[in-house]
Amino acid sequence: MSKKDNNSAAVILAYLNAKNRPYSAQDVFCNLQKQHGLGKTAVVKSMELLALEGKIKEKTYGKQKIYFADQDQFKNVNDADLKAMDSQISNLNEKMQALSQNCRQMEAELKELNGSLTTQEMTSEIARLRDECSGCRERLDKIKSVANHVTPEEKDKVLKEHNIYVKEWRKRKRLASDMMDAILEGYPKSKKQFLEEVGVETDEDYKVVVPTV
């Protein structure tokens, strides 16, 4: 057996003894290939040789062979030992769950802290906000100090009057337009000539647009 085959056999033997459960050659290849770079042919050859040497056990089920560690190397355990092991496993599982939960909580806290401002950033942000507040306060004081400032009531009154005038403007513009259309039905000349003769000036002449209400 080459040195490479010896290394493969040693790795597989250690793995089977450590796991102490049945595996096929395919299982061992999949589990060890990535970490140890073992080829499938080398795995099959090494496991068959280890079984032939009696270092591992081999069982055949139909066309598939199963390999597992030689149980003679492990000490016998009684029911009390098994119960103690079960209790130990249960305790370890509880500890693992508690640690996992604590780890998740700490990861969440770390994520929150990483998303928060540092002390230096907070200090800078506070200073910026204070400057902004100071500027707003100065502008507010200037507005309040103006003697002829418009009150909200006065502003509402102006807006209401503006709406009334605009509506009246539209109404009168429409009436004038309707009257001119009626006259132009029997007028022999164009609308432009009619407007010039009667001396009517329109909003369009001065590029005036009626405001929207």
Rank of each mutant, 00 (worst) to 15 (best):
K4Q: 05
D5E: 14
D5A: 14
A9K: 01
A9R: 00
I12S: 00
L16R: 00
A18C: 02
A18N: 05
K19P: 01
K19Y: 04
N20C: 03
R21H: 02
A25E: 00
Q26L: 13
V28D: 00
L32C: 09
Q33G: 02
K34R: 08
K34W: 02
Q35N: 09
H36E: 15
G39T: 03
G39C: 03
T41M: 07
T41K: 10
V43T: 13
V44G: 02
M47I: 04
A51G: 05
L52G: 05
G54R: 02
K55W: 06
I56N: 00
T60I: 15
T60C: 05
G62M: 06
K63Y: 10
Q64V: 14
K65E: 09
I66Q: 01
F68K: 03
D70M: 03
D70R: 02
Q71Y: 02
K75S: 12
N78P: 04
A80R: 04
L82Y: 04
K83A: 12
D86A: 06
S87V: 03
N91A: 13
N91L: 15
N93G: 11
E94D: 14
A98R: 14
Q101L: 08
N102F: 04
N102R: 06
R104W: 11
R104K: 13
Q105C: 07
A108F: 08
E109F: 06
S116E: 06
L117I: 05
E121N: 04
A127W: 06
D131R: 10
D131P: 02
E132M: 09
C133V: 14
C133P: 00
C133G: 13
G135D: 14
G135P: 01
C136I: 14
C136W: 13
C136D: 11
R137F: 06
